[in-house]
């Protein structure tokens, strides 16, 4: 008894975005990464092929972070003390993209200077051929102070500068436009806010294929359902033809998951939580995999084992 499968035909398409530029394209990357371009809800290949698969980024810091989980310190080891080494290790662990998150202070406790930040970025670019995303430390003035020289020093590399927020986007967008980079726009788990920031950035004249949106998520157990539904709604709106939501989505399940007590610590927790390492990998992996199925195009992770599992899941999802 043949059944007619109802298929959704959507008017909208997600923008296809390429990150990084090779020698021939004005940069120094050994490869570029392209994602986006979807015309269906995630992985529904009976409706349309998946043009580009979601990719995995690994987050590294400019110096060894004090507050990361011991499990992460253990797995990255000495590489954590040198961003170049860390980037190489991340590439070996299967990252498609490196996310370099800058800190407020340097390893000696002094405020991070623009010179130092530019130096770190150049070191990472020199050590590893992957495309790069740079996140400022998250303070308006400092972000602008660091990201502008970074943007200028890496002109043509097609890196992503972050993070644009509704109260601070102008400077970052302007420098990204001037230097051929991309930006990422973060809003706190709200469909309207996300769309609004995209409008503001677009109003400045930023081309659509150079914008990523980060709708923010909570980790498993800490509000993942909000991020989950916001992302589903954004993707649905995009497919329905809302041009201001048709940007690829980047989310940071690694950051979120490793904040949780479940992932971060192994002592002083209930026995019913089970084995620490396996639990924390599951925490990060399930957060990421769930969000990939709502439409995430880039997931930023922290643990190599999670990277492996999430990449497996992506390959599996592509097989019909």
């Amino acid at each position: 008894m043949p059944i007619e499968i109802p298929k959704d035909k959507w008017p909208g398409t997600i923008h296809t975005v390429t990150l990084g530029a090779t020698n021939g394209e004005g940069g120094t990357r050994s490869k570029t990464v392209t994602f986006g371009g979807e015309t269906t809800m995630p992985f529904l290949q009976f409706e349309a092929p998946v043009p580009h698969k979601p990719v995995v980024a690994i987050e590294i810091k400019d110096h060894k972070p004090e507050d990361w989980s011991l499990l992460l310190a253990e797995v990255w080891g000495a590489a954590m003390t040198d961003p170049a080494e860390w980037a190489k290790a991340a590439e070996n662990a299967g990252a498609d993209i490196i996310v370099l998150a800058l800190s407020v202070n340097d390893e000696n406790g002094n405020p991070t200077t623009p010179e130092k930040a530019v130096g770190t970025v150049k070191k990472v670019l020199g050590a590893c051929g992957l495309p790069l995303i740079v996140f400022g430390p998250g303070q308006v003035d400092l972000d602008n102070e660091l990201l502008v020289p970074i943007s200028e020093a890496t002109k043509g590399e097609r890196i992503v500068l972050g993070i644009c927020e509704d109260k601070n986007y102008r400077t970052i967008v302007a420098t990204a436009m001037a230097n051929g980079h991309l930006v990422t726009a973060r809003t706190p788990m709200d469909v309207n806010l996300s769309k609004q920031l995209n409008i503001l950035i677009t109003d400045m004249g930023m081309p659509a294929d150079r914008i990523l949106m980060d709708p923010t998520t909570g980790a498993l157990g800490y509000g993942i359902e909000y991020g989950y539904s916001v992302m589903e709604r954004l993707r649905l709106a995009a497919l329905q033809g809302d041009t201001m939501t048709q940007f690829p989505m980047i989310v940071t399940p690694g950051f979120e998951a490793w904040k949780t007590k479940e992932a971060k610590v192994g002592e002083g927790v209930p026995g019913s939580w089970g084995d620490w390492k396996e639990r924390s990998i599951n925490w990060e992996t399930l957060t990421a995999v769930s969000l990939i199925q709502t439409g995430a195009d880039i997931v930023v992770l922290r643990h190599p084992e999670s990277v492996k599992r999430v990449k497996y899941a992506i390959e599996e999802l592509l097989m019909a």
Binding site: L220, I224, G274, N282
Partner: peptide, 11 residues
């Protein structure tokens, strides 16, 4: 295994 069921139950 608790480390499997705990995250799934929460999800």
């Amino acid at each position: 295994a608790p480390d499997l069921f705990y995250p799934l139950l929460v999800l």
